[in-house]
């Protein structure tokens, strides 16, 4: 008990020393998070569960997860390929790609959203219509999550000296075998980290998806659109509940991937 009191006192001293910092983050994050949580559980755990398991909610959540999952998988592969080219290829092509990779980080989501809608909408100049379908959602998610895997894998790839790969080749292994048995295992933790960040970003994505998806309930309505719709119709408890469930999924994915990649790193180093 005394020990507990002591630690509380120490905590208070720390908080007092950083009053302004504490106030800022309390106003912007802590109070809003508390308000949201209290709304989510306003009718107890049962109320939370029933809000999350509304048919429209379940459908929105599963569409979101499915599209985010597909986009994450594709970008895990393509991101690794791109990182490979950026690190190992010294031509002007690589330098050009280097400049393009970060564009999705910098481009406002709404710009991406309206542009993708124009590009793949009903009057598509490419004659490819993906709007109002899960493919359109996935393409938007591919766009916004593109840099995550690339930027996670790139530094690891740079730190590999190539000695192990050369050794493998001197032992007679083919390029493919060298890649799969030597290079890939050391990249895996980074790929996993990049993929988990992509997934967490994808399930919460709104601006780039909302235009191309068409927002048709039960068909192309993603979780963030559903939450927005609930909040617009003053169903705050429902909006809060679905928000919390989305946050839980993101946190589980992020910490799970973190744990696994730590294990993998320990094993290979």
């Amino acid at each position: 008990m005394r020990r507990w009191l002591f630690s509380i006192r120490k905590l208070h001293a720390g908080v007092r020393r950083h009053t302004l910092l504490t106030t800022y983050i309390t106003l912007l994050v802590l109070i809003p998070l508390a308000a949201l949580t209290s709304h989510a559980f306003a009718h107890g755990p049962a109320g939370f569960w029933s809000a999350v398991t509304q048919p429209e909610s379940v459908k929105a959540l599963s569409i979101t997860m499915a599209c985010a999952g597909v986009a994450t998988l594709i970008n895990a592969v393509m991101g690794t390929v791109i990182a490979f080219v950026l690190v190992r290829d010294r031509s002007w092509v690589a330098r050009f790609l280097e400049a393009v990779v970060d564009v999705p980080f910098a481009l406002p989501t709404v710009v991406a959203g309206v542009t993708l809608m124009t590009l793949y909408g009903p009057n598509s100049p490419l004659h490819v219509t993906l709007a109002n379908a899960w493919t359109g959602i996935t393409v938007a998610l591919l766009f916004v999550t593109l840099p995550f895997t690339v930027r996670a894998v790139e530094p690891v790839l740079e730190s590999l000296t190539g000695d192990a790969e050369a050794a493998s080749r001197t032992l007679g292994a083919s390029t493919l075998r060298t890649f799969s048995s030597i290079t890939l295992p050391s990249l895996l933790p980074a790929i996993l980290t990049g993929a988990s960040l992509s997934f967490a970003r994808a399930i919460g994505e709104f601006g780039s998806v909302v235009f191309i998806s068409g927002n048709r309930p039960f068909h192309t309505e993603v979780a963030s659109s559903y939450i927005f719709m609930l909040s617009q119709s003053q169903n705050f408890d429902g909006a809060a509940a679905v928000s919390i469930s989305l946050l839980v999924v993101a946190l589980v994915i992020l910490s799970g991937a973190n744990l696994i990649s730590k294990r993998l790193t320990e094993r290979t180093s």
């Binding site: 967490a200 919460g204 939450i227 928000s243 993101a250």
Partner: peptide, 17 residues
């Protein structure tokens, strides 16, 4: 924390507060 949150989530939580 805000990095793991959907922008919609951030908006809704501020609104609720």
């Amino acid at each position: 924390v805000p990095l793991a949150l959907s922008p919609i989530f951030v908006g809704v939580m501020l609104e609720l507060a």
